[in-house]
């Protein structure tokens, strides 16, 4: 009987001691810098502006530099991108008559922007996409059919398109450059010898 009371008191003492140990950690947080931020209205800068360039937010298309190559449509695993690019019957030039992205379906995997040759389709840092209807979740980028962009030899000279292309290349530069491993190894061996 006496031992069980002693046991009970020892447990109570241990519990109290360890609780105080834990509480000292909690108390020490009163003097530390707070880590929480008051989203969305009390942040110093917009959260979107603090995100890295790689951030995979809602997709955006720069139609001015879209070549109509359909690489993104083919790469998308859930077919949320729909592009219609018929050839103009008279001039034989490629027209973009439809470029829809269903952001309700999109899973932000980045496979489409990885394959884009000009960086036309890319992720923005925008992530607040809530809306009232499914129909409004489909982003339609083509208002009137436009001519597809044709890559030029050398530098882009059009002053309207050059900055957009530069921005697209900035997005492209983030992705890793694939290398041919056989060639790479050969080069390494040559450099070593």
């Amino acid at each position: 009987m006496a031992s069980s009371i002693g046991q009970y008191l020892k447990h109570a003492k241990d519990a109290a001691a360890t609780i105080f140990e834990g509480m000292s950690v909690t108390m020490s947080h009163f003097v530390r810098k707070p880590y929480t931020i008051q989203y969305p209205d009390r942040t110093a800068v917009r959260v979107q502006d603090t995100l890295p360039l790689r951030y995979r937010g809602i997709l955006e298309v720069d139609l001015e530099i879209c070549t109509g190559c359909l690489a993104c449509e083919r790469a998308c695993p859930i077919d949320c991108i729909v592009i219609d690019a018929p050839k103009d019957k008279v001039t034989r030039a490629m027209l973009l008559s439809r470029f829809d992205i269903d952001i309700a379906k999109c899973m932000y995997c980045g496979l489409c922007s990885e394959v884009c040759p000009t960086g036309s389709i890319h992720h923005t840092t925008e992530f607040e996409g809530a809306d009232y209807s499914l129909e409004s979740m489909i982003r339609r980028f083509v208002k009137d059919p436009v001519l597809a962009y044709k890559a030029k030899k050398g530098e882009e000279t059009d002053p309207l398109i050059a900055p957009i292309l530069d921005r697209g290349m900035e997005f492209l530069a983030e992705w890793a450059e694939p290398v041919d491993m056989k060639k790479y190894k050969k080069d390494q061996e040559e450099a070593a010898s």
């Binding site: 890295p52 790689r54 951030y55 980045g110 983030e174």
Partner: peptide, 24 residues
């Protein structure tokens, strides 16, 4: 991880043959 691959939970960081982004 967001700085590394642009997502916080569904990373899709790796590719067959390596990774999609080098370390920033």
């Amino acid at each position: 991880l967001e700085d590394l691959c642009g997502a916080r939970l569904t990373f899709n960081y790796m590719r067959i043959g390596g990774v999609a982004w080098d370390l920033p």
